[in-house]
């Protein structure tokens, strides 16, 4: 226990239908989420390596903080 190899990466994905542009995700995960001029999130298109712990942590915050529960983390084996 304890040692987990962190290979692969993750995407943060938004369901555009649910998202209402509250912008919390941009505040919680600024390294992954930008805002467009209408206040909707533009999310990093490339997967982020899981080894970037801080980014993963903020992605989790964003997922929990989204008032519409529109965000999801999707893991991929390749980073």
């Amino acid at each position: 226990m304890g040692v987990r190899r962190r290979t692969g990466g993750f995407y943060l994905r938004v369901n555009p239908i649910l998202c209402d542009g509250f912008g919390h995700c941009h505040e919680l995960a600024p390294e992954l989420v930008n805002m467009d001029e209408w206040g909707y999130p533009i999310i990093e298109k490339e997967p982020t390596p899981l080894s970037e712990l801080a980014a993963l942590e903020s992605a989790r915050y964003a997922v929990r903080g989204c008032p519409r529960q529109a965000l999801r983390i999707e893991r991929v084996s390749e980073a």
Binding site: P16, I17, C19, D20, G21, D36, E37, W38, G39, Y40
Partner: peptide, 12 residues
């Protein structure tokens, strides 16, 4: 008009 980028982007 379900998705922000479409509902606001296209009129823009």
């Amino acid at each position: 008009r379900q998705c922000g980028p479409c509902a606001f982007g296209l009129p823009a």
